[in-house]
């Protein structure tokens, strides 16, 4: 079989095309939002939030009789927004350390989600879908939902880029410029929540963090400015979406695992090349 047919064969089915489009969208958008997560050192928040949406997803799942449907987004988004707001409220002053607040909300929500899912007879199969994603089950309306959420997130970031940059870099300047700092902080938490929910079906809860962190961290190694980092990260996210998709199709491995392993491979390659290059330069310079 030649390379063209290897690449085109899976695309013969509409549901597979949808799956691939979803992975590309999700890979790109998560990477953009992930840049803010990385520069602000919020990985723990990202991980926590992706787990905290479980009860919302579980409720939608249970309500629709154990079927993965569009209302997953609704339930997930609800739980994500509630969790983000509770965390924002708990950490509004320094009385409770941020990581403690995040951890408490995270485990509470996750445990609640497990409790809800366990009421279902198909408990373990359901949980597997939610934790690891099921990209080929994505419907036309799901895909539109992902695209709409992604577009909304990108639009907000585009419009408020310079304010988000300042809030991420130097809160004191943000205060002195009279920015609504608290609202911008909550907005960023909500953007992360929406991104996680949009990516839910593609990669699942357990591996969500990689989509946010790995492309951004990889891009950070390559460039010096945030907007460059965002461009490179989204390219890495998209490429990983495509590569992960084919790997998933031919190796029959869940798409979430494939996309994450692809991301990690790119990260490893960049780290290795960079340290190799640094060594070479040092040797040349001495």
């Amino acid at each position: 079989m030649d390379i063209v047919s290897l690449l085109s064969e899976p695309l013969g089915y509409a549901f597979i095309q949808r799956g691939m489009l979803a992975l590309i969208l999700v890979g790109g958008i998560s990477a953009v939002v992930g840049c803010f997560v990385v520069v602000r050192g919020m990985s723990f928040f990202g991980d926590a939030l992706s787990h905290a949406i479980l009860p919302g997803v579980a409720l939608s799942y249970t309500a629709s009789g154990g079927y993965v449907a569009s209302n997953l987004f609704l339930g997930g988004l609800g739980a994500g927004i509630v969790s983000a707001l509770v965390i924002a409220w708990l950490t509004r002053n320094q009385e409770l350390k941020e990581d403690s607040a995040i951890a408490i909300v995270f485990v509470t929500m996750f445990a609640l989600g497990i409790a809800i899912v366990s009421t279902q007879a198909s408990y373990s199969a359901d949980l597997t879908h939610i934790l690891f994603g099921s990209i080929l089950g994505i419907s036309q309306s799901d895909l539109l939902m992902v695209a709409a959420m992604g577009a909304a997130v990108l639009l907000v970031i585009l419009l408020l880029y310079k304010e988000l940059l300042i809030v991420s870099f130097d809160l004191t300047l943000a205060h002195s410029l009279r920015f609504p700092v608290e609202r911008l902080r909550i907005l960023l938490l909500l953007l992360i929540a929406v991104t996680i929910v949009a990516s839910l079906q593609a990669v699942g809860i357990a591996l969500m963090l990689a989509l946010l962190i790995t492309p951004a961290a990889t891009a950070r190694l390559l460039v010096k400015r945030l907007h460059h980092m965002i461009v490179i990260a989204s390219l890495i996210g998209i490429v990983s979406g495509v590569v992960g998709f084919y790997a998933s199709y031919y190796l029959d491995i869940p798409s979430g695992a494939c996309i994450v392993l692809t991301l990690s491979a790119i990260f490893g390659l960049v780290i290795a090349l960079k340290s190799g290059f640094t060594q070479l330069r040092e040797r040349g310079g001495s």
Binding site: L165, F169, D170, T172, K224, R225, L226
Partner: peptide
């Protein structure tokens, strides 16, 4: 108070 590794020129 500043994160000097922040990606900003």
């Amino acid at each position: 108070e500043i994160d000097w590794k922040f990606p900003a020129s």
